[in-house]
Design a protein around this nucleic acid. Structure first.
Length: 219
DNA sequence: ACATTAAGTGATT
DNA sequence: AATCACTTAATGT
């Protein structure tokens, strides 16, 4: 596989990038990198020199809590970039997050130096970045709401649906313990609430596996 | 058959 | 909702 993309390929992956000059510079400076499932792409405390644009696969982004436990933040999939990484690039700070390949993933790594210059120069790039910020912000606010109002059942439902969505599969392979770690709650709480969801007919449980059942008419 | 790991449950705080 | 103590179920050797 090639190390670089052609401008046509960049256009295909990111149809929102309109300026020929932007496509050219991304194709020119971007490097295709491949990560296997479970590989750590970026870890806490390391300096960020590249901004990733995800081409295929999924990346799981988490934050390190005060007590050393991890808290799941969000997934990145095709056509997305990492908001946290972008802000690290801009301010030249160490990473506050860890990014792990949830499945085999290819991404386009963009060198950090030019990013703010592109913001002024290419409107579609600026829009892309701002849109990413907007989306992440909404997501995080929703999570904060769920945490502060103790709506763990809602949060758990969201989690399962998101995870199924990024995989493009109604059946997800995981343990209750893994979910508990991601959400920072006890394993028992996860087991009990999942059981409740199962009784409501939303999911089906078996060992190491959760299946999402089709929800009623119109979804 | 036995050990290990995942999941379910009730009681307590 | 967390923690503990325990049971039950599934899987691996």
């Amino acid at each position: 596989m090639e190390d670089k993309l052609t401008t046509e390929e960049v256009q295909q992956y990111f149809p929102d990038f309109t300026e020929p000059g932007l496509l050219q510079v991304i194709a020119d400076q971007g490097r295709v990198r491949y990560f296997r499932e479970g590989e750590v792409i970026l870890d806490y405390g390391s300096y960020v020199r590249m901004l990733p644009l995800i081409l295929t696969g999924t990346i799981k982004v988490s934050r390190l809590g005060e007590d050393g436990a991890e808290l799941f933040l969000y997934y990145l999939t095709r056509g997305e970039s990492c908001t946290m990484t972008f802000s690290c690039c801009i301010s030249d700070k160490r990473s506050q997050i860890r990014a792990v390949a949830e499945e085999n993933t290819t991404l386009l790594a963009l060198p950090q130096q030019r990013l703010d210059e592109w913001m002024m120069r290419y409107k579609s790039w600026k829009n892309f970045v701002m849109q990413a910020y907007d989306q992440r912000m909404r997501e995080l606010i929703r999570t904060i709401d769920q945490v502060t109002f103790n709506q763990l059942d809602v949060r758990l439902g969201d989690y399962v649906r998101r995870r199924a969505k990024v995989r493009g599969d109604r059946t997800i392979q995981t343990t209750h313990q893994e979910i508990a770690d991601d959400l920072h709650v006890s394993r028992e709480a996860v087991s009990r609430l999942l059981k409740a969801l199962e009784h409501r007919g939303e999911i089906e449980l078996s060992r190491n596996q959760i299946r999402l059942l089709a929800t009623g008419t119109g979804g």
